[in-house]
Amino acid sequence: MTESNDTPLLEVRNLKTTFGKGKTLVKAVDDVSFKVYPGQTVAMVGESGSGKTTVGRTLLRLIPAAGGEVIYRGVDLMSLKPREMHPYRQKMQMIFQDPASSLNPRMTVGNIVAEPLDVHLKLTRTARRKRVGELLEKSGLNPTWLNRYPHEFSGGQRQRIGIARALACDPEFIVCDEPVSALDVSIQAQILNLLDDLQKELGLSYLFVAHNLAVVEHFSDYVCVMNNGKIVEHGDRDSIYDTPQHEYTKKLLSAVPNADPKHKNLHARIK
């Protein structure tokens, strides 16, 4: 889409994450590899429990990885010490699924949005406030609301606050962890459009985690289908949607409700 389309911004190789040990060992992410190119959106699709969220969190080292590499602009993030990871945190951000729990109820919107700024850029008071106002505006909120608290907002607005926080330090790569699945359908479209606009405007790359193929159909460039911690199928959006190969992908596609009665039997329901 944008320049240098051939060198990936982020490359994940054989990523593994496990929980527990001994008999109760669970391989949440098992040997997952994919690439994210600048300005692209990679969708990670699968049923709940398939490990797609864990992939996103492991990438950002919120969960320790059991193995594998995450190459970001030529640097393996997994081998960095927590201190050395610090500058990369600025460029990689995350948007969370549940807007209710992703905002600290005791902090004002301004402080929530400014948190990455406080950590990474030591701005002056006025600069910080100006920047927060810009961010709120950019994510479709009224900049005068920065003294309000999260519980005074609707779900969609809270998600916008989350987006504003993610944008604070001009990131290059954002993990969107099912950002719309907790929202009403009408709001979902708004948030997706916002994300799309921001991508075009700022040249962001997304790793878009979703359990619903329909959500990412018009949004993603590349789709990975995950099941039981493994990527069972991956490919361009068109190839996945038009000619799914794997049984699981077909199942997922068949579960997508179709609004157009004329195409009722496009994907026969597979049980």
Partner: peptide
Amino acid sequence: YVQAARCCG
């Protein structure tokens, strides 16, 4: 939100 704070560094 704690995860988000960790994510911010």
